[in-house]
């Protein structure tokens, strides 16, 4: 089962749309509530990251009987130092984004905490691809 969502950079009112849809489907599959929670938290963080930093993005979700794979691809500034970006509290979010209650520098760290596998590939000036796998 595959799903695809588009994300619009800068549009915070739409952030959370993909994670809510995915959540509804995971409930229909009868996945354990804690597991759903982790996936949804990680996906929501991913969505917000794209909205806050990139110009546009796309989410591909692949559901299989024992795992869910989520790929979040964006066109944006990219991440120069991924290891640094993974640290809690590190953020490059603009003042405007922070004023909206986002950009506390917990995003990537929180995603790592809530997924079984997380890989990040990024090219500065082009964009970032985050791949997450969660096993049920």
């Amino acid at each position: 089962m595959n799903l695809e969502f588009n994300i619009e950079g800068g549009n915070f009112s739409r952030a959370g749309h993909a994670s809510s849809e995915v959540k509804k489907m995971l409930k229909q599959l009868g996945i354990d509530a804690r597991c759903i929670k982790s996936i949804v938290i990680a996906l929501y963080e991913g969505e917000v990251n794209v909205v806050a930093h990139a110009y546009e993005g796309r989410i591909l979700v692949k559901m299989e009987p024992h795992k869910i794979t989520t790929e979040i691809m964006d066109k944006g500034p990219g991440i120069a130092d991924i290891e640094l970006a993974m640290q809690e509290g590190y953020s490059t979010a603009s003042k405007a984004v922070r004023e909206m209650g986002f950009g506390a520098g917990m995003g990537l760290a929180n995603m790592k905490k809530n997924t079984d596998e997380l890989t990040i590939e990024s090219t500065v000036g082009e964009g970032t691809t985050v791949k997450m796998v969660n096993y049920f």
């Binding site: 409930k27 229909q28 009868g30 559901m63 049920f136």
Partner: peptide, 11 residues
């Protein structure tokens, strides 16, 4: 709200 108790069938 689960579609089927068996996950493969639910999917």
């Amino acid at each position: 709200f689960s579609l089927d108790p068996d996950r493969e069938r639910a999917l």
